[in-house]
Design a protein around this nucleic acid. Structure first.
Lengths: 138, 138
DNA sequence: GCCTGCGTGAAACTATCCGTCAAAAGCGAC
DNA sequence: GTCGCTTTTGACGGATAGTTTCACGCAGGC
């Protein structure tokens, strides 16, 4: 049961965009990629998926780039995971009739636990937390 | 983020073994496989891993088979997942220095949530729950 | 019209998962 | 001892999904 790096990349990109949300500045995909240590060409694909999920908007042409579609507080890790994979927690067992109902219930319980904690983490919190830990160095 | 069928198979096998735990009966791998709808040759490998994790014991030779190593109440879903995959929740991000610390914290939070709920589900509960729902049909 | 950067699809590469098979080895019974 | 049953172990191959790169088309500003 592993999290794909893709979702991690997506989260990093959104975190980067959240940082520049107040200034309304658009960020070029390549800059974001460099800043976050993500393969540029790969990040482009990810950004497209994030746009399809209405988490980011894009501006074309010169001076173009990406920006958050909503307030950082309105975007959760759950949104990111759902945008990247269809479902946060996937298992063949959930649709396999051979799987004992009791076990299916158990898997669903775990699915729910993951969703709930992912939905409880939004990007405003992450920003605040980052600022707070940075203050220790001042 | 998906659960492998392997872990599901493992859980099914353990559930089957838990059912016959009171009678101390050993179960042949093939019977277990048929009963739980798992490819027999595959289940064999899984059972070996479960044995290495000290969740089941085996008896060789004629009249041989597998049996639970401990009380069903002492075996949790977390044990199963850890036996099959090394870690319940794996992510490259957790060891990637490029990943912002704030995000790593978030992933760790999710990891912890998964572990906690998996550790909270043991096989005695599953047995009881199965019995209870079966009673509705009597 | 030209430059910049987004948009999209396809190809290559990798890793891991699934499942099968065959041979080795332990155990009990006759 | 040897025969049959069952676990044990390792190797193998196909399938699937994840990762990455590349190439080219499209839109908007200057």
């Amino acid at each position: 049961m592993k999290l794909s790096v893709k979702s991690d990349y997506a989260a990093r990109a959104l975190l980067g965009l959240a940082r520049s949300f107040q200034t309304r500045a658009v960020r070029r995909a390549e800059d974001l990629a460099d800043e976050q240590g993500v393969p540029a060409n790969y990040l482009v694909q990810i950004l497209i998926e994030l746009k399809a999920a209405h988490l980011v908007n894009s501006v074309r042409g010169k001076e173009g780039g990406y920006l958050l579609a909503r307030q950082p507080a309105e975007i959760t890790l759950g949104d990111v995971l759902r945008a990247i994979h269809g479902n946060i927690f996937d298992s063949q067992a959930l649709t396999d009739s051979q799987c004992p109902p009791v076990l299916r219930n158990a898997w669903e319980k775990m699915q729910e636990a993951v969703s709930r904690t992912a939905n409880a983490i939004n990007f405003q919190q992450l920003l605040d937390e980052a600022d707070r830990s940075k203050m220790y160095y001042i």
